[in-house]
């Protein structure tokens, strides 16, 4: 209950459209401080969009998103950039800078945002790389790494400035079982060791729920479920059950919305 009284992020009655398509029809949710929150839901439900709204890269049509008490969509550009220094994001593609080595990628935010001398930056970068198990790969270029290693380097870069929260966008996509296990353990370990608030957007339900403390399920333009993983597994809601069991039939339609076939042929 205390986590509900002190959420790190609150989303209140957010309506969001992408051109004419309604993505969110007045959603509300919260992300508890210091916990791992999983955002799950079918493809196209707007999970990544929610991350972009929290990061201020998108602006909602109406409603409010507060990060540590600050309304993201009310902030001026400079204030928003200051707030972002307190967030880390792990993008689906890793988004490493291709012309920089692993070391320089991780050092990049430190060189831009701090006045640390080169020796100290080297120490911090090697510590961050050690945390993701890639200290030995510091002099490699991104194209020399596997997809999973690129994501781990991106994770080291995301935690370089010691953020208060970190958002993972589909971190487990395309991972073999070992890579997936490594990333799962990393997310859990970093959250505990650095006292982070973590948000994990993922399709890998079983794995994500195994490390999550809190779950937000998005579907059909609304928050279909919010609570603990245990409560989600025990939910009798048809939509939640369809998602948990992977059923093709149920409240989430197989077809993208369209007029009846007979009307158009």
């Amino acid at each position: 209950m205390s986590e509900l009284l002190d959420p790190f992020i609150t989303v209140e009655n957010v309506v969001f459209r992408r051109e004419r398509r309604l993505i969110y029809d007045g959603i509300s949710a919260h992300v508890p401080r210091g916990k791992i929150t999983a955002i799950v839901g079918p493809s196209g439900a707007g999970k990544t969009t929610l991350l972009r709204l929290i990061g201020g890269q998108l602006i909602p049509g109406s409603g409010d998103i507060k990060v540590d008490g600050l309304s993201v969509n009310q902030l001026k550009r400079k204030q928003l950039f200051e707030l972002r220094k307190r967030m880390g994001v792990l993008f689906q593609s890793g988004a490493l800078f291709g012309e920089l080595s692993v070391f320089d990628n991780v050092a990049f935010p430190l060189r831009v945002h701090t006045e640390l001398d080169d020796d100290l930056i080297r120490l911090v970068v090697l510590m961050k790389l050690e945390a993701v198990g890639l200290r030995g790969a510091f002099d490699l270029m991104p194209y020399e790494l596997s997809g999973g290693m690129q994501r781990r380097v991106a994770l080291a870069r995301a935690i370089a400035l010691d953020p208060e929260m970190i958002m993972y966008d589909e971190p487990f996509v395309g991972q073999d079982p070992i890579g997936l296990g490594v990333l799962l353990a990393l997310v859990k370990r970093l959250n505990q060791a650095l006292d982070l608030t973590s948000i994990v957007v993922s399709h890998d339900l079983k794995e994500t729920l195994s490390i999550a403390d809190h779950v937000i399920m998005m579907a059909n333009r609304v928050v279909a479920f919010e609570g603990t993983p245990q409560a989600m597994r025990g939910s009798e809601d048809r939509l939640v059950q369809q998602f948990l069991n992977g059923s093709p039939d149920g409240p989430v339609s197989f077809h993208y919305s369209a007029p009846p076939l007979l009307e158009v042929v």
């Binding site: 550009r77 707030l83 972002r84 689906q92 988004a95 990049f108 935010p109 831009v112």
Partner: peptide, 14 residues
């Protein structure tokens, strides 16, 4: 395309 611009934004770099 490779989200490097988005990643810069999220690092607080314009």
């Amino acid at each position: 395309v490779t989200e490097q611009l988005a990643s810069l934004e999220m690092m607080g770099i314009d």
